[in-house]
Write a protein that binds this DNA or RNA. Structure first.
Lengths: 237, 237, 237, 237
DNA sequence: GATGAATGAGTATTCATTCAT
DNA sequence: GATGAATGAATACTCATTCAT
């Protein structure tokens, strides 16, 4: 017997949504875990199994693997943004900036999934504009504040923070198995180079990416992801 | 000057027929191109197609993917070593060091395959020790010279050079499509941090990898290698 | 009567969906047919084609070729054991023995896959011990009964039954295309030699395989199995 | 400068022939060794390597793998025929017959290559008529003599010897690794069944293959060979 | 909605056979 | 004639994605 719901009766719908939402979250959690352990190449079957749902369910929530990775990425961006905003409130602008970099690098050092996500997942397009819109204001503010206080070299730009993060993540990723704290070393090195120009220290020889270039890059992605498994038949050429 | 022989140096190996040598070279060239563009995960079918030969031909020259990658690797190591040795002769130790870093970072920034090759030896161990034996002396000399001249911070070690170029190149690769020279920016940033300690510049908070740890890392690889295709049936777990 | 469970008896395993069960059966049927016709070297693609399903489906039900072969093997062992047990109940011990030999030789003569299956377990060890545990008691009883009744030469042992059926079936298979019943001729010849010692009939000059040797042989396989396809990269030497 | 040979000047030709003959023999020897060790699935590259010649040379002497196997087979048949003929001269016809069977079985027990050759190489067509023409007379004589002397059951025929040999080879092959002498046991069993009919011993229930059927069978081969590697593209269906 | 079954293109590697040197 | 280089179809197995239950 079919019950035709009144136009405003959304209780059934709500229930499903709650159910669906629970599954969505389970999948995201499992994906973070599995991708962290096995790398982004882990199969969605594995993710589904870890989530305790069928693959079909994963696909119902995320149209394809790319979208799932993207969603994971967005959540991470949100966290990073929150931290960046917190860092903007720090009494000392330099400390704020550095503590943000430390936060970001430290997170990555602990979490291979996050590292991969930030470094290698150039899948997806939506996530790019999202990340840009989301993080840019905080980044700009973080940099500007420190420069205005004369504590940061003036040729540094907001987009540099992304790449700096990327660099540190690379180091962290590389040596995580034997020296989980090695990122501190390389971050310190970089931070040392961030101080305002002094004697014997040259200006940065090339301009930073501007914001459009960064967008463009995020869409094209580095080579690191080109090896990623593509849907059958999707091979170029 | 002692020449360290490649692990499988069969220099006594009978010369290949002209056509065979031509094809061998074609395969190496194609492999360099394809791995550079798609990463080491590219299939040998793809390499063969790019070389304009059948897969069988690739397998005739290189018994498996690993060997092909290794051959590529060996050539690159030799080039880098040669450059490092040249850099040791530079009149100014600082300039020598920096010019080597520029050479290495520049090469690696443009070629993801090379980066993977040099940093993530998922394949074989012989070639890792080869690389280590081959490059290490020059690296040590490069660093020592600059430190003895008081031009380089004293807490920097030879293994850092490897990680620094890796970091810079990886970050830069990300943006390589729009700004192929962006690596210069980030290398400059780091180079600025390499100057001897001054006021406001802290010592590096964690020790560098020692040479055994580096070996270990090269064998284990960072997460970035987890995606590397394994021989069928070799999957862990 | 104790029931010896199959090595991987997952009888608790949740029932397959109707369609899945149908396909599983299709695959088993096709495999029996294809392996019977082409030998165990037939590819799973061929099996899949014969079953009218994709290879993926075969692999969904049986994680690898070995498992498929094993499943087939298990069913066959069960059938043979049932027959052997039936034969133990025959009023006349001699007739019981002979009728079992006829059953086994007849089955094996018509089906090369079955023969390879029963005799050359290049695959797995569990199933060998399963077969041993399952069939041995009946074999021993069959032989003992006939000997106790003075109807069977006393130097025959249980393991001989296996070799006898194998020999007869293999020889007969050779001629099976023109004379599917030729195995009867050679079985009869051998059965004649099974009668208790009489004048002009010598004792068997070498001891039978003992049960451990038989196990060992099944695991190592005769030369006939050398041709068996091995997993890629598993080649000896 | 080309020397046009006088019509009867065959010295150059002879030289080549001698050379060629030497290579041919080398290949045959190597093939016997390699197939014996690795089974008939061993590659021709392996055979060529063992023979110390190039694959091309193998192919020059034998148009394909089948022909090489066939040639090997012929040599074996010649040896067996010689022995059979010797056996015909034995003073006691029964002893002659039995000693021939022992010779054949003993050879096979020691030589896996020979076993495979006789049991599994149904490749080839020429070899069949050859074998028939070559061996049949001796087989017939061997059987007839023993029957005429009343020492052999009268329902045995010449073609049975081939299948009996096959049976014993099967047993030898099966257990050769643990018990190289087990063939004696099964040959003895069979030989016991060859004695003239006595009480309790039934007539053979099916006629032997006649000579045409045997031909036919040798052409079709048993299933055991169906798994043999076929030339690419030669797959049925 | 959720499930998990089915699909098939893709991967590394081998080997019979042909053909340029 | 001999050599060994080149070819490509074939094999076992995996996994993103679609679709029947």
């Amino acid at each position: 017997m079919t019950v035709i719901p009144a136009p405003d009766d959304t209780s059934a719908e709500r229930k499903l949504r709650r159910d669906a939402e629970r599954n969505r979250q389970r999948v995201l959690d499992a994906a973070l875990r599995v991708f962290g352990e096995r790398g982004l190449d882990a199969s969605l079957d594995e993710v589904a199994r870890a989530a305790g749902v069928g693959v079909g369910t994963v696909y119902r929530r995320f149209p394809d693997k790319e979208s799932l990775v993207e969603a994971l990425f967005k959540d991470r961006i949100d966290e990073l943004t929150a931290e960046a905003e917190r860092a903007c409130e720090a009494p000392d602008p330099w400390t704020g900036l550095v503590s943000f970099l430390e936060y970001a690098a430290g997170r990555m050092a602990q979490d291979a999934g996050l590292r991969q996500l930030l470094m290698y997942c150039t899948f997806g397009k939506d996530k790019v504009s999202y990340a840009r819109a989301r993080m840019r204001p905080a980044m700009v503010r973080l940099v500007r504040r420190a420069q205005d206080a004369g504590l940061l070299r003036t040729d540094l730009e907001a987009t540099d923070l992304k790449l700096i993060t990327h660099m540190v993540a690379t180091a962290a990723d590389y040596a995580a198995s034997v020296r989980p704290d090695i990122w501190r070393r390389y971050l310190a090195l970089i931070v040392d180079g961030l101080r305002p120009a002094r004697e014997g220290v040259c200006e940065l020889p090339v301009a930073a990416l501007d914001s459009d270039e960064l967008l463009c890059v995020m869409l094209a992605g580095g080579t690191a992801t080109r090896g990623a498994r593509r849907a059958p038949g999707t091979y170029p050429d």
